[in-house]
Amino acid sequence: MTPLTIDEATRLATRALRLAGAGEAMAASTAKALVSAEAQGLASHGLSRVAQYATHLRNGRANGSAQARVVQHKGAAVLVDAAQGLAFPACDLAIATAITTATTLGVCFAGVANSHHCGVLVDHLRAVAEAGMVGLAFANSPAAMPAAGGKHPIFGTNPVAAIFPRKNADPLMIDLSLSEVARGKLMVAARDNQPIPLGWALDSEGRPTTDAKAGLTGAMLPLGSVSSPKGAMLALIVELMVTAVIGAQFGFEASSFFVDEGNAPRIGQAFIVIDPGALAGKDVYFERMEALVSEMLIDDGVRLAGARRMGLEEKAKNSGLTIPDALKDQLDRLVA
């Protein structure tokens, strides 16, 4: 294992992305997000993605010179065009615009189209909580899961996320993939030649598998798919929210993130920002939040949503990161 400070990791990731063709702002925004994910213990969305993004930039699957811009703003509805660049600058713009709009109107729906992989979805909402607002987020991704009762991949793992600010405490942060596990976990298992549990994925023939590489070429299983179609139905809702509503591509129209060659995915993200002050009022909101948290913590063993990842991130700020030697070697090759 190789130790790195947060600054060292950020500089390494930024340089790798710049050399692959990303503009300065895009590289900086993306590197910051990936290092934050690594610091939170989310290796599947952390520095392991640098090589993937760099390859997509070099192969034209992502446009390093793209400039995200607001292309539609009607009342509380905002549409940002990521221009086929990496997702992070476009999501930053969408969130900033949504906060400003919600401050005036009480709520905002901001969509991002023509986008790419957006990393840890809930992290885009941190600025929302810092502004004292509630945030919801949705994203689609290249096809990895079948529809309820089906066999071939149609939907992505289509994560959903939410953030709820607290007074004088870290926000509650919820982030979950609608597959049984995030697909990035298969990517890490495949890289490390580790098996995966049954119930995570199917191979290309539709058979349950413990082989991570076979799962990546097959299909992910929806959340709760063994006993219920609920995960697949939720994935359908997210798919329509970020495609039919904002004009992004369907997951089955986008080439997998896990192949070097392919099309620009042009998938989407959507964010809803709500000002509690426009409804029951912020005093009521914060009182109700703390009442619920207090009730939850009556039981030993309850862990507040997001507490573990934020604790790990705080620790990493002080003592740095530790990444596999193979990953460090990969990053070094990218900047050589």
Rank of each mutant, 00 (worst) to 15 (best):
K230V: 12
A235G: 13
V160H: 04
E38N: 04
A162I: 11
N193E: 15
P195R: 15
L178D: 05
S177K: 06
L223F: 12
T217R: 15
M26H: 13
L292H: 14
N263Q: 05
H45V: 08
A9K: 01
E38L: 14
L234Q: 09
S48Q: 04
S255R: 09
E38I: 10
F88I: 12
K315H: 14
A22L: 06
F250I: 02
M173L: 13
V160F: 08
M133C: 05
A137T: 12
N263C: 14
N193R: 15
G199A: 12
P171G: 04
A66W: 14
E38S: 12
T97C: 07
G156P: 02
H56S: 12
L297G: 10
H117S: 08
G301M: 08
R309I: 11
L125E: 07
R303M: 12
V284Q: 12
R49W: 02
A219D: 02
F258D: 05
D92N: 15
S65L: 13
V50P: 01
K167G: 06
D192R: 09
G277Y: 07
V226C: 03
V284D: 05
D211W: 09
R18K: 11
V78K: 02
D203R: 13
I267D: 04
S48N: 14
S177I: 10
L93W: 05
D300I: 04
G111N: 06
L297P: 02
P165H: 00
D329L: 13
A113H: 12
D81P: 10
A305E: 07
G75Y: 03
A62D: 05
T101F: 03
A87N: 09
S255Y: 08
E130I: 07
H56I: 08
G150F: 08
A113D: 09
L34S: 00
R58V: 04
A20K: 00
R18A: 03
L240I: 14
K32T: 11
T243R: 09
G277A: 11
L304K: 00
L327G: 05
T100L: 10
R207C: 15
T210F: 06
G132Y: 06
L19Y: 08
A22H: 04
P229N: 11
Q67H: 14
D325L: 10
L136C: 07
A37I: 03
G23P: 14
A37Y: 01
A16T: 13
P3H: 15
A82N: 11
A270H: 12
A139Y: 05
G46R: 11
G21V: 08
L216V: 10
L57E: 01
A9F: 03
I99A: 05
M289S: 11
R18F: 01
A264G: 00
R166N: 02
H116L: 04
R191G: 07
A232E: 03
S227H: 13
E314A: 14
V80C: 07
F138E: 02
A264C: 10
G23I: 09
A110W: 02
F286S: 06
P276G: 01
A22E: 05
A148V: 06
L216C: 07
L327A: 11
V273G: 10
L125P: 09
S204Q: 15
L312T: 05
P3V: 12
F138W: 10
L79R: 03
D329H: 13
V259L: 12
S319G: 02
L57A: 01
A326Y: 08
P195K: 14
Q269P: 00
I196G: 11
G184K: 00
L86M: 08
Q84H: 13
A129K: 08
L105N: 00
E239F: 05
G75T: 02
